[in-house]
Design a protein around this nucleic acid. Structure first.
Length: 472
DNA sequence: ATACATGATTCAAT
DNA sequence: ATTGAATCATGTAT
């Protein structure tokens, strides 16, 4: 207290503070009013001139202390706060808590949908939403804005961008399927790390500012409301960073996704040898072309492809094999019907009975029967042959020694049995179901059980490109 | 430029 | 979960 007096006496002429040292909050009720006025006048004057005075550390501290201890201080501050409230702060008094910012909402939604933001949506987004007050900073207090705020902003921004670049460049050109989830997880991790840092920085800085303001409120008039407002402003500023973080994360996810989709859409033919091996297996197990898991693994290993790709291949192969036959049948149907109509009761006797398709195949198999009978039929046969040759060609290409039966012969057997069900209505034989049509699931019946040559079992395991068929 | 071949994906049924 | 069927998208031959 005595220091205070000396302090003021140091500073040019304002020495006439009263000698009474009253308890701080005892606002001199018992003093004459003119004396009080004078004191207030003195204080005001000091305040007015304070900016003109140069001060070093010691001076500042002392002055603060003096002011702090002055008994008129609380009253004065409260008045000043009121004035401030009315003049400055009330201008943007609008308490806009609500607008959750649609853009931020969208980003949040996407991040959650992509599994990046995770379950803790509530904390982050609501805080962000709360922080997202609309008013653009009018005068957020320059003192604060300069020092830590900028620094922290820059720091966060830089860390964030470093991280972003790190994982953005880390994905080269080809994204393999197995990488996708890993990369997504990486993004998620980076995002959450950064978000944590962001939150921490935001809280730390907010606390720091609040403390600073509290501290300053002892030497200058700062209402609690003003501190609140400052916190809001800070949150809003940080929300911009949050937005940026989320936006960039969303972009990264989008890029990853598009690249992944591009990559997996690329189709690369298997090697000739691989196709050969697969066809070999297929045709040597034509009666039941469903390789077991072990067989698939074995094939995958031998072919240098994945089990998934083997599954894909067999799926495609089966359906296309069957489809080709069906197509041939239908085509034959049309032509046979035409031919039958054209020739009415004539020579078609052998094959056009039921629907013509039987005739078609018999024609094919028998080969010589009708071939030369007339043009239309000849074309018909030629078409059939062409259509079927296509099927055969798939096996013919590799009819190597390793094949246990020639593709042609297998196909022949297949065709013979294939037509049986269709032509049975006209077939005189009372019963001829093949003894071995073990399963009627594959291609409408049985095939001759081809010799299955590859009996060796290995446990090869490799997985990379193909993914869909077996499981994810 | 077009059609075809082919690996991969999607969808529904089981 | 596996499969069939349809479809997509691309590679390749014409």
């Amino acid at each position: 207290m005595e220091d205070g007096q000396r302090m003021y006496s140091q500073q040019g002429g304002l020495t006439n503070m009263s000698g009474n040292v009253l308890p701080q909050y005892n606002m001199g009720q018992d003093e004459p009013s003119d004396q009080r006025k004078q004191e207030i006048g003195d204080i005001l004057q000091q305040i007015m001139t304070i900016t003109d005075q140069s001060l070093d550390e010691a001076q500042a501290r002392c002055r603060k202390h003096t002011l702090n201890c002055h008994r008129m201080k609380p009253a004065l501050f409260s008045v000043l706060c009121e004035i401030k409230e009315k003049t400055v702060l009330s201008i943007r008094n609008s308490q806009e808590e609500e607008p959750p910012d649609p853009q931020l909402m969208r980003l949040d939604n996407m991040l959650i949908a992509e599994g990046v933001a995770g379950p803790e949506k509530g904390g982050g987004s609501s805080a962000a939403a709360n922080a997202t007050a609309a008013a653009s900073g009018g005068q957020p207090d320059s003192a604060i804005e300069h020092s830590d705020y900028r620094a922290k902003l820059a720091q966060i921004r830089q860390i964030y961008h470093t991280e972003l670049e790190k994982y953005e460049q880390s994905d080269g050109s080809e994204i393999k399927n197995s990488d996708y989830e890993a990369k997504l997880a990486q993004i998620r991790q980076v995002y959450q790390t950064e978000y944590g840092k962001y939150e921490q920085a935001c809280n730390e800085f907010t606390t720091h500012v609040v403390n600073l303001l509290r501290e300053q409120s002892r030497t200058r008039p700062i209402a609690p409301k003003e501190i609140e407002r400052m916190v809001t402003i800070i949150r809003k500023k940080f929300a911009a960073i949050e937005m940026q973080l989320k936006q960039s994360t969303c972009e990264a996810v989008m890029i990853l996704r598009s690249r992944f989709l591009d990559a997996r859409r690329k189709r690369r033919n298997f090697s000739k040898q691989a196709t050969e091996l697969l066809n070999e297996y297929f045709y040597s197990h034509l009666s039941n072309p469903y390789p077991s898991e072990e067989a698939k693994e074995e094939l995958a290993r031998k072919c240098g492809i994945t089990v998934s790709q083997v599954s894909n291949w067999f799926g495609n192969k089966r359906i296309r094999y069957k489809k080709n036959i069906t197509k041939a049948q239908e085509e034959a149907n049309v032509y046979a019907a035409k031919s039958a109509a054209a020739h009415e009761g004539q020579g078609a006797a052998g094959y056009n009975v039921g629907g013509g398709q039987a005739g078609m195949y018999m024609n094919l198999n028998g080969g010589d029967n009708y071939q030369s009978s007339d043009n239309s039929v000849g074309d018909n046969v030629q078409n059939q042959v062409n259509a079927l040759r296509h099927v055969i060609s798939q096996s013919g290409g590799y009819s190597s020694d390793s094949m246990h039966s020639t593709p042609a012969s297998m196909y022949e057997q297949h065709m013979n049995q294939q037509i049986t069900p269709h032509s049975r209505s006209q077939n005189g034989s009372p019963h001829d179901p093949k003894p071995e049509d073990s399963t009627d699931s594959w291609c409408a019946g049985a095939f001759m059980q081809g010799l299955d040559g590859d009996g060796d079992n290995y446990d090869g395991s490799s997985d990379e490109p193909g993914l869909k068929r077996p499981k994810i």
